[in-house]
Write a protein that binds this DNA or RNA. Structure first.
Lengths: 213, 213
DNA sequence: TAGGCGATACTAAACCGTTCAGTATTGAAA
DNA sequence: TTTCAATACTGAACGGTTTAGTATCGCCTA
């Protein structure tokens, strides 16, 4: 028909929104500020997005990567598979923005359950599912204890990475290094062969799913 | 002089603020809402605190426990010491409030560096220091590799607990269980005796401070 | 009787979302 | 190639709401 929407304006707004959301928080960023920073008029912004939340949602999708191919890995080598998933980088170009946005999204998700569900389903669950599949295979093949506490295992694998994301941002840590180290430490700590070699007295053995025995 | 300030009003405001900050976030909580919820007039609130940030600060101190005895532990048993620190509960009565407030504080700290510094110095650093001391002893005594990457070790120890706090709040996890399991897994993964028994091929040995060799 | 207290009104600023007149840009018909 | 209708964009203004913080009252108590 007639004039199509300017995708350049669309992109400029998204970039500016990302920048500002990360810098000042979501509540701390007014639509006027987005308009000014992007150079796109507020009226136009409201033609492209219904409201601030819609803009936030698309910005989040952009920064987290829209594709999210969650290719599965299965190389028989438990530790290698875990490492692969834990060191998998997101399609990056928005790494900085994502890093800065993450704390804000955590808080926002805690306060807005609806948004939180979308965020978690889209970006927290996928790696959890990949890891879960690998762990289950390990349990079935006997490499891991059959009564492994999955929830705890996921926390042990993903927690350190999140921790570093959260508190060591300025020191620009090497996430590949962390991911592989965590995976290997996990395997050492939980793989059945290792457990059998443990010299820890039985009373302090880890049962992993139950408490200490 | 004359009439002293009502400590009851003071407490009521703090409690209400905690409740609301946790429930709606900091930016999402107006001083009017605090006044209404506490039953204390806004004028009185501003007699007790200079501004919203001062109120937030005191509320945070309250919820995190003002005392914070950071008793050191040293029982020659590395793993036991780590477990002790990781399962140390805070003086509780405000557990619920603290749990709810944490995501908000993470975001707020990321956006307000000044506040963030106080928060981290007060409540993130102490356990880190305790653990660091224990880890150093382990390195000196030879129980841990001399070139252990402290930053990474801290992430591995504290990350899983934070992860569970963050994402598994509803499932009411048992933090003592997590703390002790993480400590023991860490010891298995990194203690030198265990490492020597490792059957992993040398090329996949973990050097812990450097990358993979 | 000095000063804390509650109630309420107030200010100045910021916010979101809407509206509108005027201008620029487009695809398609002529 | 020209024309034209349809739509997007700008810039500015505006309404209604909310905010942090101040000010002004009497009332009440240590």
């Amino acid at each position: 028909m007639a004039r199509p929407r300017s995708s350049s304006a669309h992109q400029k707004v998204l970039r500016a929104a990302l920048e500002l959301f990360g810098e000042r928080g979501i509540d701390g960023t007014s639509m006027d500020a987005v308009a000014q920073a992007s150079g796109v008029s507020k009226a136009t912004i409201y033609h492209h997005w219904a409201d601030k939340e819609a803009l936030l949602m698309e910005a989040m999708l952009l920064v987290h990567g829209l594709d999210r191919e969650s290719k599965e890995v299965d190389t028989e080598d438990l530790c290698r598979d875990l490492t692969t998933v834990l060191t998998r980088r997101n399609p990056d170009e928005f790494e900085t923005e994502r890093e800065r946005l993450t704390p804000t999204l955590i808080a926002y998700s805690a306060l807005h359950p609806k948004f939180g569900k979308v965020w978690r389903d889209g970006f927290i669950q996928p790696p959890r599912r990949s890891l879960t599949r690998i762990l289950r295979r390990g349990m079935e093949s006997g490499q891991l204890p059959a009564d492994l506490d999955l929830e705890l295992a996921l926390a042990i694998l993903l927690g350190p990475i999140m921790y570093v994301h959260m508190f060591r941002r300025e020191s620009r840590p090497d996430f590949d290094y962390i991911g592989s180290t965590v995976a290997e430490a996990f395997c050492r700590g939980f793989a059945v062969e290792q457990a059998k070699l443990s010299k820890l007295p039985k009373t302090r053995r880890i049962t992993v799913s139950g408490r200490l025995r």
